[in-house]
Simulated scan of single mutants.
Amino acid sequence: MTLKSASTDILMQLAEVVGQLTNEAYAQPLPVLSGNTIGKHVRHILEFYALLMSGAQTGILNYDRRQRDLRLEVDTDEALRRIGSLDRATHKLNLEQPLDLETDLSAGGGQTIVLPSSVARELLYNIEHAIHHMALIQVAVTSDFPAVELPPHFGVAYSTVAHQTQ
């Protein structure tokens, strides 16, 4: 499996689950998510992907500077459209392209550091980041929406899947 095909796999798993939820279920605050919603987790995943796409254009990537498009939290159709467009954009990326990753590690802000990275490294990060949030979505779906069918290995890291099959 390549990075791009792994990314497609993860995004299509996410789309499969989002596509089974009503807007009401998608945007419902859930105790198991500490009052957060499945939609907020999906938005977060998609915004990180979108930042990677724009960072690939500029050469500078900063995950802290998100726009937080609230439509992605409440509208499953918009989330599904965005998943599709991000998947298509991912396949156009030059994985060897270098990036400057900007981040602020201070609680008060204002102490930005810049680290060398690459599109490939950040796509891998986005895959792992998505899996982490999908694990939380999996807990919420299992708890509150048992009629939703989860894809095999939804929210499980590839290394864990490999270990479990040994």
Rank of each mutant, 00 (worst) to 15 (best):
V18I: 13
I131E: 00
T76Y: 08
M134E: 09
D9Q: 11
V148L: 10
I83E: 00
Q28Y: 03
I137S: 02
L150C: 05
E47N: 12
T22P: 07
L72E: 00
N36F: 05
D77N: 13
G19M: 09
F145S: 09
Q67I: 12
D75Y: 11
D9M: 14
L123Q: 04
L80Q: 03
E24Y: 07
Q111C: 09
P152F: 02
T112D: 09
A147I: 06
G84T: 07
H153E: 12
G109H: 05
A25L: 12
S5L: 12
I60Q: 15
L86F: 10
L52V: 06
D64Q: 13
D77W: 06
T2Q: 14
A89G: 12
Q164S: 15
M12T: 10
A50I: 06
D100L: 15
N126W: 08
H132I: 05
A135W: 04
L150P: 03
M53C: 07
A130I: 02
T160Q: 14
L61E: 02
I38L: 13
A50F: 07
S159K: 12
G59I: 01
L11A: 12
N94L: 13
P152R: 12
Q57E: 15
L51W: 04
G155H: 00
F154R: 00
S117T: 02
A89I: 06
T165L: 15
R43F: 07
V148F: 01
I83S: 01
L136A: 09
V139S: 01
L70C: 11
T90M: 08
T112K: 15
V119K: 07
P29Y: 04
R43A: 03
S7A: 15
Q164L: 13
E47H: 07
L52D: 06
E78W: 13
R88A: 15
V148W: 00
D144E: 14
R43V: 02
L30F: 04
Q164N: 13
L70S: 13
V161E: 04
H44D: 01
A27M: 09
A50T: 06
F48V: 03
V18D: 02
T2L: 01
L61F: 07
L21D: 01
V141Q: 00
I131G: 03
E78P: 04
H133P: 02
M1P: 03
T37G: 11
L124E: 11
R81F: 10
L150S: 04
T142D: 06
Y63F: 14
S85R: 13
E128V: 02
